[in-house]
């Protein structure tokens, strides 16, 4: 079988650094998941197998961790993955309506991706940003103190950013 190499050079370099960083290299499992997630936006299976080989650890160790933690989707998400905080402090400041608004604007449900592949939507538990509720996280960035106007602005900016490559 032909071997496909998917991990980028910089991902490989990072994984190798984590391999030598901890007293026990099993500790690097989560950090390796972050590297693969960062490159692909989800846990690409072949890439994860490659990572496991570099780490000289069983692939199942990575799959097991991936099945437990919520940050690592196992299928492609939108280029911009929107996660709305649904827990109490955000709830008290209108998170339910915020989610409904995003569903309406994007024309998708929770866990779905828009047809152009640009946006996906999910609801998550407390993001730890209760003082600036309601809050959503898009990829790694927090968007806080949201209002309807601000949501429109953020989505427009991201659409423009995607168009301009």
């Amino acid at each position: 079988m032909e071997k496909i190499e998917k991990l980028s050079d910089s991902s490989i370099k990072e994984i190798e650094r984590f391999k030598g960083l901890y007293p026990n290299r099993n500790s690097a499992v989560l950090m390796v998941l972050h590297v693969v997630h960062q490159q692909f936006g989800f846990l690409d299976r072949e890439a994860l197998r490659e990572a496991a080989e570099i780490m000289e650890l069983p692939y199942i160790d990575f799959q097991q961790a991936a099945s437990f933690y919520t940050l690592f989707p196992n299928k492609p998400m939108g280029k911009y993955h929107i996660q709305v905080c649904r827990t109490l402090a955000c709830h008290l400041r209108g998170a339910e309506e915020l989610t409904a608004l995003l569903k309406k604007i994007l024309g998708i449900g929770i866990g779905e991706v828009t047809n152009d592949g640009l946006f996906s939507l999910s609801e998550v538990e407390c993001l730890g940003s209760c003082g600036t509720a309601p809050v959503m996280q898009i990829n790694e960035i927090y968007y806080e103190n949201l209002t309807r106007a601000r949501v429109d602005e953020i989505l427009d900016d991201l659409r423009k950013k995607a168009r301009n490559g």
Binding site: N24, N26, V29, L30, H34, Q64, A65, F68, Y69, E125
Partner: peptide, 21 residues
């Protein structure tokens, strides 16, 4: 971490830091 409230519990944090669930 990987997105799990439970890992704030100190022994879960240790298990997680060792690479496990």
């Amino acid at each position: 971490g990987g997105g799990a409230y439970i890992c704030g519990e100190e022994t879960a944090l240790l298990t997680s830091l060792e690479g496990g669930m």
